[in-house]
Simulated scan of single mutants.
Amino acid sequence: MSYNAVVCNVMIASPADVQQERLLARETLWNWNYLHCEQSQIVLMPIGWDTHSAPAMDDRPQGIINKQVVERSDLLIGIFWTRLGTPSGEADSGTVEEIEKHLAAGKPAMLYFSSAPVRPESVDAEQFAALRKFKDQCKEKGLIATYEDPAQFAAVLQGHLVHTVNDHSYFQDIRSASGSVATQAENPEPSVELDLSKEARDLLLEAAKDPNGTVLKVRTFGGLTVQANKKNMVTAPKDGRCEALWEGAVDELVENDLMADVGYKGEVFRVTRAGYELADSLAQQA
């Protein structure tokens, strides 16, 4: 059964020494969506300067990132280990400026500091001293979290996301503004005779297997991802022909009322009642 949900952008902010944690943060957000988005009526969309910014020459680099990414974020996850980052021109680092701008807008942020061992010779003493100073400042202003290794980071983040989305006033206001989950209007009875492409049929069948009937369409520097039931349908990212086939498949399903766009940027879709009924018919014919 389809349902409505609000898509909230979650910015992952960090210096360059926590790449594994950045990837785990994205994975944890997707896992949270699979488990909680229907009940919470919220989808958490991971974004960052590396995936959601584009070249521009109308401001300093961090100013452009602020406009393209930070201002669009609803929640910020900050991650640190041994570095604070490069000064941005307005703050001690780009990451610090992102956090300050985000908090100044009245939006929630969760900051994580790694206590994992590190080789002394690999540490920039100036960067480490700046990080310790920033960490102490954060302790005075709020509550931070520490972790011992990437696996522990992913585990604690999962729990913190549940707590923040359920209890923080920012997300409570989002749910109040969006109202209760609306039951979508009934769609016309599906026709198995619909002239769908093979890709559209395969995508519908895979999406119908997903517990939430969700399809995610996201374009990053790594190419296009069309994900259904935890499976990326695009077998050759960055191949123009392959990407066009799967983008077309998404468009076909939406145009035929078999799938509905439930986000506001064309990235999150749900199988409709008509879509489920057609998927059942197609599965019986297979």
Rank of each mutant, 00 (worst) to 15 (best):
M1F: 07
S2C: 02
V10P: 00
I12K: 02
S14H: 13
P15W: 04
A16N: 15
A16Q: 13
Q19F: 13
Q19S: 10
Q20S: 09
E21W: 06
N31H: 12
C37K: 01
V43R: 03
P46Y: 14
W49M: 14
D50W: 10
H52M: 09
A54Y: 08
M57S: 15
D59F: 03
Q62E: 09
Q68T: 05
I79D: 01
F80H: 03
W81M: 00
E90W: 06
S93E: 03
T95M: 01
K101P: 04
A105M: 11
A116I: 08
V118F: 13
V123L: 04
D124N: 15
E126N: 08
Q127I: 06
A129M: 09
R132L: 07
G142F: 04
A155E: 10
H163Q: 13
V165A: 06
A177C: 12
A185F: 15
E186L: 14
E193T: 11
D195Y: 10
S197W: 03
R201S: 13
D202R: 07
L205S: 06
D210F: 07
D210K: 04
V215A: 02
K217N: 05
T220E: 12
T225N: 11
V226E: 07
Q227L: 04
K238Q: 10
E243D: 11
A249W: 10
D251W: 03
E252K: 07
D257N: 11
A260I: 06
G263F: 15
E267A: 06
V268P: 00
R273H: 10
